[in-house]
């Protein structure tokens, strides 16, 4: 029992600690521009689950390639998908009045 639980316990406690940090960060007056900082503890938690519980480091090259491809294509999806809306300049429509 101990041999099984002991290596996983720090992962679980680390996740709970990061969760507490995440929750605390949400109540800091960061302002709209820094609201994304709340996602940093979440990213660390995802990494911890990936390597701690899903044991990504133990798998072979094929599984790692699939995991890396998932991250790569997710970044492509988010990057290309948000590029146009984030950089678009919106001009007000000119209202023409006729006599």
């Amino acid at each position: 029992m101990r041999q099984v639980v002991r290596p996983l316990l720090p992962v679980w406690l680390g996740l709970l600690a990061l969760f507490a940090v995440e929750l605390g960060t949400a109540f800091l007056p960061l302002g709209h521009a820094f609201a994304g900082l709340i996602l940093l503890p979440a990213a660390a938690m995802v990494g911890l689950v990936g390597f701690g519980f899903m044991r990504l480091g133990r798998y072979g090259a094929i599984a790692r390639c699939f995991a890396l491809a998932a991250v790569f294509w997710l970044l492509v999806l988010l990057g290309l998908g948000s590029m146009d809306p984030f950089t678009r300049t919106e001009y007000p429509v000119r209202v023409t009045t006729y006599p």
Binding site: E22, A26, L28, P29, H32, A35, L39, A42
Partner: peptide
Amino acid sequence: YPLIYLVGRP
């Protein structure tokens, strides 16, 4: 969780 409950809450 952060996207729904946390971002924007302050």
